[in-house]
């Protein structure tokens, strides 16, 4: 997080993490399409010829919170390929929250777990407390055959402590819920450590309401728990 008192500007960094091809870029594309114009900037993709993310994708969102504070939310993706380890660590630097995008296909279960282990390690290497990092998990590609079942995920989700969302990112399903869910716990964490309400008169709930409004999702469902 970066705070510029003079410019009344707050910048929050959210990182979309996960194995290669789980749908991180697709999530950002969907958000870019769904968010009201003027709130999202251009989606920047630093990719190689084969469409794989080389360094990161970046989608900037700008919200105006109560009392005129400008809240800039920067959504990043990391390259999932194993070889881009050092890039992932770089992109993860200064993250305020992480959305872990898992591929629901059974065949990807191990790849998800490996990527998650990698996430923990990179958080630790960056000197971040993994257990304290705001984290949500999204099971993407719910439209495909041979995926882990709803019952299975729901059962595990009740035992785990992170909010879990299900999504079909190519159709924009569940993508916004994931983003809002992550914003909610990230804001709570930032509020706890920086007293944003005291300093700026900005409360989390109105800000989230503003975000939901720009995402066109008043009253949308929350986490699948």
């Amino acid at each position: 997080m970066q705070l510029d008192f003079k410019a009344r500007e707050l910048t929050i960094k959210l990182v979309y993490y996960g194995p290669a091809l789980s749908g991180k870029t697709t999530n950002l594309q969907a958000i870019h399409q769904l968010v009201s114009p003027g709130v999202a900037g251009r989606l920047m993709t630093l990719e190689t010829k084969d469409d794989r993310t080389l360094f990161f994708d970046l989608l900037p969102l700008t919200l105006t919170a109560g009392s005129g504070l400008q809240v800039r939310v920067k959504l990043f993706t990391v390259p999932g390929q194993v070889i881009h380890k050092s890039t992932r660590r770089l992109v993860l630097q200064g993250a305020d929250g992480v959305a872990f995008i898992a591929d629901s296909q059974r065949s990807e279960t191990k790849a998800n777990a490996q990527s998650f282990t990698d996430l923990r390690k990179n958080l630790k290497d960056n000197g971040l407390d993994a257990a304290a990092m705001p984290l949500v998990i999204q099971f993407n590609k719910r439209d495909l055959p041979d995926i882990r079942s709803d019952e299975e995920i729901d059962a595990l989700a009740t035992r785990g402590k992170e909010p879990v969302y299900k999504a079909i990112a190519i159709r924009g399903v569940g993508v916004l819920e994931t983003l809002v869910g992550l914003m909610r716990i990230t804001w709570a964490r930032l509020e706890a450590s920086h007293q944003l309400a005291d300093k700026f008169g900005v409360e989390g709930e109105p800000l989230l309401a503003e975000l939901r409004r720009h995402l066109g999702m008043e009253g949308a469902p929350g986490a699948v728990r």
Binding site: F100, A102, A113, R120, I137, E162
Partner: peptide
Amino acid sequence: DDDDDMGFVLMAGTR
């Protein structure tokens, strides 16, 4: 292997 259950939903059943 850690004492918390972080990412349980992702790690469960993989080892």
